[in-house]
Design a protein around this nucleic acid. Structure first.
Length: 742
DNA sequence: TTCTAAAATATTTTT
DNA sequence: TATTTTAGAA
């Protein structure tokens, strides 16, 4: 069965699947033994090399499919890789260890959960559950939640997990910043509570596996024996624990060189704020002695002019392994990059819309065009402009299907039906819709449950049966429990889809949305729930479905073929390409973002520059950069100067354009008049509250705040002021909320 | 407990 | 501007 797969290739001098690879790509595919780092610039055929290499290992019979470990960051990348491998092998492949770090860890952990005190049936919590749990855990500490927001504590815990630190690994010195130095005991309590619930959060998937590898050499040895080859995608984005996990799996006891191949591009590392550690890629040679490095520098995507511009920008960074993109296609120079400056952000959107209209009239499809911006809020202006012009568009990214409140509610209902001991799911929906069972009642139930040693749901059921509850809440809760029990019964007779439909109906959840006054929005939510029911039907059991959504947060985007313009952030655009790319908002403070610069200094600036590089290299034929002299940010106008990145572009590759003002009809009548008739320079007339209209607040000034009273400014960080108030002491306030007295 | 209105606040978000 | 969080009243 396997042989018929191999024979056609064995007989030919060069396997077909190697045709069309350039010499570097070919080397990257055929260098199978020992550690290998493939530095693959944008558009150099990274995915092709990775998949071909995988297929090559199989076809050369170097390993069986289940002996290769292939790690990606996104489900999308994993899916694509799987498809392309089957494409090369010309048959579906099964039994591959190919997936995201987290899904692979989940698969392993199902096997070895008892080694860290979990049952194999552990549940994986989503972020809402995590926060709810943490909030309960920190209660005994009686922290000032204003000063120590739970989200911040969660962040700290996650940082520790990302560095593979268990509660007992944390020294007091590492635990001073957050929650009065109580973060470590909170972390410990949180982990204990997770164990009680037989649950783990996302970070735990990796943390538990690394812990098991470290504490149980027999388990690690098992995987050493299994995996003969390891492939890693997007290596520049790995964080400490992912790196550790890889190294544990790659380094064998016998000291044999690891067959680990990592593909990455240090110039496209844009997730440091998420814990990605660029030094992982910079120190690869040190960690894996004898490592070979292959650079893929032939770009098959963009015009020479775009490549030169992108190269020139990224050359301003110092922390690089260094590589240069060369045009790999035999093609003409291409158009220069356009740099368009507009008077304000409304014009910016309009110019983009008009240009798209022109391109479309010249025959370009909408789906060949993308608008890539630094931050999500920038999309709004473009949405408005495109809608007005009747240009079809869609927003990529944004809130994902399984993150919508109604979907999470419905899932919580399903979990409540399926798992009578799932307290977190139960808490989410007991009082949704309102059943007169609020926080106070819930707290009582929690105490009762603890005394009885039962779950919340079991306790409530007992109390209802024994008529321990009274009042109108008792009635609605009775109906609620009945719906749960009925659905549980139906699940075993008529299947999980009908059961789900039934709880949502009988519990009154659907009615809640039907009666919602905001009909348009509510209708959308009901549609989403229909969509959810359809998705559930594609899985054999509810458990299978829940496992799937815990790990795969995106719904398969099947609507890719629709002809419409794509709007997304630069981050979301990584890995994609479009013939025409608009890059708006290249202004100081926006891009590079002020906040990055304030917090991360030069390192952050370099990351912003890498973002610019990512943005430019998405374009195949045409890149258009825009900046506005004045931008509406939320309520008010702010003047801005062109981004330093524009100055870093090679002047011979760009052409500057300044279209005439064309704004009309935005904002109020008065705003319009001011914009058209006020001289621009001593600006800020658009709105009296605009930051530029306000005189700058000097250090030591006395100010008044509506709520906090009068005080003295003791420090200034951009818009954020530290003020010593007469009545309430030192507080942080936004500059736009104060008024200067003296 | 729930409703209401005012106040705060708003990068990027692969799992 | 728009959304979410909060404090206080009903």
């Amino acid at each position: 069965m396997v042989d018929d797969l191999f024979s056609p290739h064995l007989s030919s001098p060069q396997p077909v699947y190697l045709d069309g690879l350039n010499s570097e790509q070919r080397l990257a595919v055929e260098t199978t033994q020992g550690p290998l780092l493939i530095l693959a610039g944008a558009g150099t055929g990274k995915t092709r090399v990775l998949t071909t290499r995988f297929a090559h290992i199989l076809l050369e019979k170097l390993a069986w499919p289940e002996q290769v470990l292939a790690v990606t960051f996104t489900n999308k990348a994993a899916r694509e890789m799987r498809e392309r491998i089957s494409g090369i092998l010309n048959k579906p492949v099964e039994g591959l260890w190919l997936g995201t770090f987290h899904s692979l860890c989940a698969r392993m952990l199902r096997q070895h959960a008892p080694r860290v005190g979990l049952e194999r049936s552990f549940t994986i919590l989503d972020t809402d559950d995590q926060m709810r749990l943490l909030k309960q855990v920190i209660e005994p500490w009686r922290l000032d939640l204003k000063r120590w927001p739970p989200a911040q504590i969660m962040h700290q815990i996650q940082l520790w997990k990302d560095r593979a630190l268990l509660p007992e690994d944390i020294t007091p010195a590492q635990d001073t910043d957050i929650a009065n130095g109580q973060a470590q005991p909170i972390y410990k309590a949180y982990q204990a509570r997770l164990k009680e619930l037989n649950a783990c959060d996302f970070g735990d998937l990796m943390l538990h596996m690394v812990t098991i590898f470290r504490q149980h050499p027999d388990v690690l040895a098992q995987y050493h024996q299994r995996f003969r080859y390891i492939l890693v995608d997007e290596y520049q984005d790995t964080n400490s624990i992912q790196y550790l996990w890889l190294r544990l799996l790659a380094k064998r006891d016998d000291g044999a060189p690891a067959n680990i191949a990592c593909v990455g591009d240090d110039d496209q590392s844009i997730y440091s704020w998420r814990g990605a550690d660029i030094t992982n890629i910079l120190r690869f040679e040190k960690d894996f002695p004898g490592a070979k490095i292959i650079r893929l520098e032939k770009n098959y995507r963009s015009t020479p002019r775009i490549l030169r511009a992108a190269s020139q920008i990224i050359a301003h960074n110092e922390d690089r392994l260094g590589k240069t993109l060369h045009p790999g296609l035999d093609q003409a120079e291409g158009d220069p990059i356009e740099v368009i400056s507009t008077p304000d952000s409304d014009d910016e959107a309009r110019v983009v819309g008009l240009t798209i209209q022109n391109l479309h009239n010249q025959g370009q499809n909408y789906k060949e065009i993308a608008i890539l911006m630094r931050a999500g809020f920038q999309t709004r202006a473009f949405e408005e402009a495109l809608m007005r012009m009747g240009i079809p568009y869609h927003i990529v990214g944004g809130l994902r299907f399984y993150e919508r409140a109604e979907i999470r509610d419905a899932i919580a209902y399903m979990r409540t039906v399926l798992y009578p001991t799932d307290d977190l799911a139960f808490e989410r929906i007991v009082n949704l819709p309102k059943r007169g069972f609020g926080n106070v009642a819930l707290a009582k139930l929690r105490t009762a449950a603890r005394q009885r040693g039962l779950s919340l749901q079991q306790t409530l059921q007992q109390q209802l049966e024994q008529k321990e509850l009274k009042g109108k809440a008792a009635n609605s809760l009775n109906a609620f429990m009945e719906a749960i029990l009925l659905s549980r019964h139906i699940a075993s007779t008529e299947g999980h889809v009908v059961a789900t439909e039934k709880v949502l109906e009988e519990s009154g959840y659907l009615t809640m949305w039907r009666d919602d006054p905001k009909t348009v929005e509510a209708a959308g939510r009901l549609d989403n729930i229909q969509e959810l029911l359809r998705a559930i039907g594609e899985f054999p059991t509810m458990e299978a479905f829940l496992e799937h959504i815990a790990l795969v947060m995106d719904t398969d985007n099947l609507q890719d073929d629709q002809n419409r313009v794509s709007l997304m952030t630069l981050h979301a655009a990584k890995g994609l390409e479009f013939p025409t790319v608009f890059l708006p908002g290249w202004e100081e403070g926006i891009f590079p973002s002020q906040r990055s610069l304030d917090e991360g200094g030069n390192q952050a600036l370099e990351e912003e520059r890498r973002l610019a590089y990512v943005g430019l290299t998405r374009a195949r034929e045409r890149a258009i950069i825009l900046h506005a002299a004045s931008r509406r940010i939320y309520a008010n106008w702010q003047d801005s100067i062109p981004s330093r990145f524009i100055d870093e572009l090679p002047s011979e590759q760009i052409i500057k354009r300044e279209p005439a003002r064309q704004s009309q009809r935005t904002g109020s009548f008065f705003n319009r008049r001011f914009q058209q008739h006020t001289p621009r320079m001593p600006s800020g007339r658009y709105s009296p509250k605009s930051p530029s209209a306000r005189p700058p607040i000097p250090l030591g000034a006395t100010i008044r705040h509506n709520r906090l009273g009068e005080g003295v400014v003791v420090s200034i960080e951009g818009e954020r002021l530290s003020v010593n108030f007469e009545d309430v002491g030192l507080k942080q306030v936004m500059a736009s909320f104060v008024e200067i007295i003296s």
